[in-house]
């Protein structure tokens, strides 16, 4: 195996691991979630990223899955760990048209 081939494999592995991590990132941009549904498992952690030009304020009032994220200024991100199974409706209090269903499997 040549050195350049080895480098290529390392790069691919790096991309694969970045892609897996990206699955648990939810980006807010143009007053929208870039996905409107997310399927995860109990214990998974989702990073909510404000990649927008305005502030956002995420919360869920779904019974058993309640949480509030701090006021996120542009560029800020916060992690939420989903500890219970179910379907959480995540919304932005400022922009109620922003709505995301997070399905958490046991």
């Amino acid at each position: 195996m040549t050195f350049s081939r080895l480098l290529a494999i390392v790069a691919l592995l790096g991309l694969a691991s970045a892609a897996a991590a990206a699955d648990l990132r939810v980006v807010q941009r143009d007053k929208k979630f870039l996905v409107n549904r997310l399927d995860i498992r109990v214990g998974d952690t989702v990073r909510f990223v404000n990649d927008d030009e305005v502030s956002h304020n995420l919360y869920s009032v779904t019974p058993g899955m309640q949480f509030e994220v701090r006021i996120q200024q542009p560029g800020q991100s916060d992690k939420v760990t989903f500890k219970n199974a179910g379907v959480a409706l995540v919304q932005c209090a400022i922009h109620p048209q922003m709505s995301l269903r997070v399905s958490v499997a046991p």
């Binding site: 919360y59 009032v61 509030e68 006021i71 209090a93 400022i94």
Partner: peptide, 10 residues
Amino acid sequence: LPSLVLMKHA
């Protein structure tokens, strides 16, 4: 949404 400070007077 009483616990979210930004929603007061919003």
